[in-house]
């Protein structure tokens, strides 16, 4: 009962990967999203770079899976702007249009991984989990750094608690 069991566990821990899935191939989005949700991930679909940026301006994500060749703003640009909005988000490039130039280009924008379609599902899931772990670690590190600054600010207990909660929320960390 692998996937179902792990879903319960992850939901309980409130650390289920928050995945933003970006691809102009709607059928692909539909089915990959269903599978990843079964895996216990929380998944939001976007069928264009523009949509993805819209969504990412209001919702926190750990991992974005980005197709490179899309009408409108392309994958590389989408990835660059997503990183601007949410620096802790890791991007996995998943594309049928593999070329070394685009791979290097997305590498320059710190893509976590570059996978050529059709990728093995297990490998994709493994990469999402690793990227998620990396994302959480960066958030946690940042939290601890800022926490030290906060503790020097001489706030009262209640104000400190509010500030800590606010900080966790802004870093996309679970509040408990």
């Amino acid at each position: 009962m692998g996937p179902k069991g792990s879903r319960v566990e992850e939901v309980k821990l409130k650390t289920a990967p928050r995945v933003l899935l970006i691809d102009d191939e709607v059928t692909f989005l539909e089915y990959l999203a269903k599978r990843l949700e079964r895996e216990g991930f929380s998944v939001v679909k976007a069928e264009s770079g523009e949509k993805a940026l819209d969504i990412a301006s209001t919702q926190t994500f750990d991992v974005a899976i980005v197709d490179l060749k899309m009408p409108g703003i392309d994958g590389v640009e989408t990835q660059r702007r997503l990183k601007e909005i949410q620096p802790f988000m890791e991007c996995i490039v998943l594309t049928g249009h593999g070329s070394i130039q685009t791979a290097l280009e997305s590498g320059r924008h710190r893509a976590y991984q570059y996978l050529l379609k059709p990728a093995e599902y297990e490998e994709l899931v493994k990469n999402i989990k690793e990227a998620h772990a990396l994302s959480m670690k960066s958030r946690q590190d940042e939290f601890e750094r800022r926490l030290q600054e906060l503790s020097k600010a001489g706030l009262g207990a209640k104000a400190l608690r509010t500030a800590v909660m606010e900080l966790r929320r802004s870093l996309g960390l679970p509040e408990e």
């Binding site: 996937p3 179902k4 191939e25 059928t27 692909f28 089915y31 990959l32 269903k34 599978r35 079964r38 049928g96 249009h97 593999g98 050529l116 379609k117 059709p118 990728a119 599902y121």
Partner: peptide, 24 residues
């Protein structure tokens, strides 16, 4: 090859989903 990768990926995901449904 690029163009064919896309439909291949879609088929693969659909099959994967069908297997999940069947298994559960």
């Amino acid at each position: 090859a690029h163009e064919i990768n896309n439909p291949l990926a879609v088929i693969q995901e659909i099959v994967g989903w069908a297997r999940t449904l069947l298994r559960d």
